Simulated scan of single mutants.
Amino acid sequence: MTAHAAGGPITPARRARPGRLLKRAAVSLLIALVMLPPLFPLYWMLISSLKGPEELATTPPTWFPGDITFGAFSEVFSVVPFGRAFLNSALIAGVSTLSVLVTSVMAGYVFAKYRFRGRDVIFWAVVATMFLPPIVTLVPLYWLVSTMGLADSYAGVMLPWLANAFGIFLMRQFIADVPDELIEAARVDGAGEMRILWKVITPLLRPALVSLALFAFVFYWNNFLWPLSILQDDGKYPVVLALSQLLSYSTSVRYQNVVMAGALIASVPTILVFLLAQRAFVQSVSRTGVKG
């Protein structure tokens, strides 16, 4: 029996199959190698939080905990008011992110679809603020918030971040692609400007809004310098400031697993937000890449 009779004719597709498999394996290996550096700190936090103090002190360090223990996770909440700090961060990041979405859509709509004197000058002046280092605006912002009587308050922490230049720029770019005919048709039907904005335009911006919400939430969750400057009451500290309190225990091997457990808990919300938003984020990037 010939090879043709046993397995059928050897077509070009069958000859190319091993090459395709090899190419896929090479691509998978390359992706794995690229993913290892950013994922390694997360892995190290996880295994260190599951180790006991004795195992953390061993040299060389072990790559997997021999005796898994979860005591460090409960100890985090007894060493510092971590639960309260977690809620503080959720409040600050949540309200700030929601405000950025609303103000960015409204300002982006005005800059994209309205014609008025000085529009471009104002828009590029707003964009220019993106290039100011945060340390430059720290003292003026602190003076402004303090003179308003909002120092050491949740409102004082959130006030400077209720609008965002990057968000306005991003929404303006996306809204500019919405056909003017669609807006005019809504006006002919009797829709007001706010109804057009929230009922007609905003549903078309879903990938961009999700991407902006992702960036804003991660930034406000991890924001350290401004809360440190404006807050004095540790009961109002966000989670990043609570982590800085935990770092005072890191000099002792006994508490290194507690520090790692706190860092891991603080990372969970941003990881979950990214996992939930990744599909819309990829759609936003893909849409941006095919413009023009």
Rank of each mutant, 00 (worst) to 15 (best):
Leu225Asn: 04
Leu212Thr: 00
Gln245Ala: 14
Phe219Ser: 14
Ala3Gly: 02
Leu246Trp: 03
Ala125Phe: 14
Asp67Cys: 03
Ala57Lys: 04
Leu101Lys: 10
Asp180Asn: 10
Leu144Gly: 08
Leu197Pro: 12
Leu228Glu: 06
Gly235Met: 09
Asp180Pro: 06
Gly52Phe: 02
Ala93Lys: 00
Leu275Gly: 12
Phe86Ala: 15
Thr147Arg: 15
Leu241Thr: 08
Arg117Gln: 13
Asp177Lys: 01
Gly66Ser: 15
Leu46Ala: 01
Ala6Lys: 13
Gln283Tyr: 08
Thr251Phe: 15
Met45Val: 03
Phe131Gly: 12
Lys236His: 02
Ser250Gln: 10
Gln256Ile: 00
Ala6His: 10
Leu101Tyr: 03
Gly235Ile: 01
Leu141His: 12
Pro41Asn: 08
Gly7Tyr: 02
Asp233Leu: 08
Trp198Thr: 04
Arg15Asp: 08
Leu162Arg: 10
Gly83Leu: 11
Leu87Phe: 09
Leu50Pro: 10
Ile135Leu: 00
Leu22Ala: 15
Pro227Ser: 15
Val100Trp: 04
Leu214Ile: 01
Arg15Tyr: 04
Leu264Tyr: 04
Pro60Asn: 00
Phe217Asn: 01
Ile265Glu: 14
Arg206Val: 11
Ala186Ser: 14
Phe219Trp: 14
Gly262Pro: 03
Val282Ser: 08
Tyr43Thr: 00
Arg17Met: 13
Arg287Glu: 15
Glu55Met: 14
Ile183Val: 14
Leu42Thr: 11
Ala107Cys: 13
Ala163Trp: 06
Met260Ile: 12
Lys113Gly: 11
Leu138Gly: 06
Phe70Arg: 06
Leu275Asn: 12
Gly7Ser: 02
Trp198Cys: 09
Val218Leu: 15
Ala112Glu: 07
Ala107Pro: 08
Ile230Asp: 14
Val273Lys: 07
Ala242Thr: 11
Phe215Asp: 00
Ala191Met: 05
Gly118Val: 09
Leu42Ser: 11
Val240Ile: 04
Gly8Met: 03
Phe215Gln: 00
Leu182Phe: 12
Ala186Thr: 13
Lys23Tyr: 15
Leu247Lys: 14
Asp120Arg: 09
Arg287His: 14
Phe166Cys: 06
Asp152Ala: 13
Thr147Ile: 14
Val136Asp: 07
Phe131Ser: 09
Gly19Asp: 10
Thr251Cys: 09
Thr69Leu: 03
Val102Thr: 02
Gly292Asp: 05
Leu91Gln: 09
Ser99Glu: 07
Val282Thr: 13
Arg20Glu: 15
Trp198Glu: 07
Ile122Ala: 07
Thr288Tyr: 08
Pro269Phe: 15
Gly94Glu: 11
Lys236Ile: 03
Pro269Ser: 08
